[in-house]
Design a protein around this nucleic acid. Structure first.
Lengths: 117, 117
DNA sequence: CGGAATCCGCAATGATACTG
DNA sequence: CAGTATCATTGCGGATTCCG
């Protein structure tokens, strides 16, 4: 999803939240401050690279706060920003909607509604 | 994004809404019934194939209702389902959040917060 | 430990042609 | 008009390596 095709905010938010990881990372950051390694453990299947890439995206979007401490070994902490915390209930609402509509979904390409003119 | 890595509903909704088109299609379907060609005109840059693929995804998720009429030329209409309409305000909330946080975003990789231990 | 840079395979997407 | 099928292309995302 390289660039935008419309200028509506809808497409712009989705540019940030799309994909498997952004919402999951926000979800895990609800618990409080996390270090890079913590987030890797929370999401065992995310690759090292993806985690850095996705975190940077969230930082640039103002959703996550990155704090880098000096010294060895390196230490970096991630937190939700105030803006990011406002986003949490919205994501939760989507999750709730999903659960509530559980019965409506089709196995994928089931019956087709056909109507005579 | 082939399969799920967690069973939380958050990842499951995003599986459906992720990408450039799903939310845009839902947005355009707010106006009421649309035919295939209408949606193509609403989204000039979406390819024929992508439109069918994405629409099918939304239909399978119970968000969009597909109605096929017989006769020539072929005619198919798309509507939001009741469930789909419930989704609209949630997407709008995300868009509003995005607009409200406009000032917080960085140009992409700007300053870094560094703290001495 | 956290991150940047590189290479690379595979899935997603686009273009085209064909069908009912 | 709407959709399917096929093939070509893109680019995401994983593995690996090197750096502070």
């Amino acid at each position: 999803m390289k660039d935008l095709v419309s200028r509506c905010p809808i497409e712009e938010v989705m540019q940030v939240l799309s994909g498997r990881w952004p919402t999951l990372l926000i979800y895990y950051l609800q618990d409080g401050t996390k270090r890079f390694g913590d987030l890797r453990r929370d999401n065992p299947t995310i690759s090292h690279k993806m985690l850095t890439v996705e975190l940077r995206k969230l930082v640039d979007a103002g959703i996550v706060q990155r704090t880098e401490f000096e010294g060895y070994p390196l230490r970096v902490e991630y937190d939700l920003t105030p803006e990011g915390r406002k986003l949490v209930p919205l994501i939760d609402a989507l999750a709730d909607w999903w659960d509530a509509t559980d019965g409506v979904r089709r196995p994928a390409g089931a019956a087709v509604d056909r109507v005579s003119t």
